[in-house]
């Protein structure tokens, strides 16, 4: 049986203009991911990791090359169409959690479902918060939660719309080692349960080795694309 490709990136190039000229951040990047695969993008600061994640998730447009996400050529979509695609197919986890500060934990998790027009968004959000161990703190605001708790709310939110692919940008970057470890376990457990494709950006090689495949970037180019031997 042929395994379907969930992300197909070919000959991607991205350049930023600055006052002193242009800076090529990504150059000739091509790779593809299969559904359910776990994948890490690693590299030193300035290697283009975050730019690549932004392009793959449809948050930005490449200067050239093509991206096919969940079977859709995203470079042909306008901004609102890409937003819709993200709402239906994509989940995010950010280094600094990025919870909406004016919404409670429950409301933060419910937002992606509410955007889909789900009638039982609150119930589903509550179930997810129970799953990440925050059933007792659903009405707390982000400012009333610890860093680890905030990232667990972010995890619940990321999985609330049952995404086909989940992008995680340094998910433990703001957490202490112990808390970070627990978050990673939770992330991989939830991912396994949902069968979601997982793309993690990290400096942490221990975390990267937990995935099935590692893409090393340097100076905006692919240095290595290797399968992790378990």
């Amino acid at each position: 049986m042929e395994v379907s490709k969930i992300l197909n990136v070919s000959q991607l190039r991205k350049t930023y203009n600055s006052g002193s000229g242009s800076l090529t951040v990504l150059d000739d990047i091509s790779f593809s991911l299969e559904a359910g695969e776990t994948f890490a993008i690693v590299g030193p600061s300035g290697s283009g990791k975050t730019t690549l994640l932004g392009l793959c998730a449809g948050l930005d447009r490449p200067d050239s090359g093509h991206i096919e996400l969940c079977g859709v050529e995203i470079d042909t979509l306008d901004e609102d169409e890409r937003a819709l695609l993200r709402n239906r197919k994509v989940g995010f986890i950010f280094q600094d959690f990025q919870l909406l500060p004016t919404l409670t934990a429950l409301e933060n998790v419910a937002v992606p479902l509410e955007l889909q027009g789900a009638k039982n968004a609150s119930i589903q959000a509550k179930t997810l918060l129970n799953k990440v161990g925050l059933g007792e703190r659903i009405h707390h605001y982000p400012s009333q939660l610890s860093g680890g708790e905030q990232q667990r709310v972010a995890l619940a939110r990321a999985f609330s719309n049952t995404p086909e692919i989940l992008f995680a940008d340094e998910p433990t970057g703001e957490l202490d080692e112990e808390t970070g470890q627990r978050i990673i376990e939770l992330l991989f457990d939830l991912n396994k349960e949902a069968g979601t494709t997982l793309v993690i950006i990290t400096h942490d090689m221990d975390l990267a080795r937990k995935t099935q495949r590692i893409l090393r970037l340097k100076g905006g180019k692919i240095l290595m694309d290797e399968k992790v031997m378990v």
Binding site: A57, L59, E79, D80, A83, L84, L85, R86, N87, R88, V90, F92, Q98, L99, L100, P101, T102, V111, P112, L115, Q116, R157, N161
Partner: peptide
Amino acid sequence: RSIAVLKCMGASR
């Protein structure tokens, strides 16, 4: 920042 997060979640402009 919150607006950008909402857009990431799939909210339109």
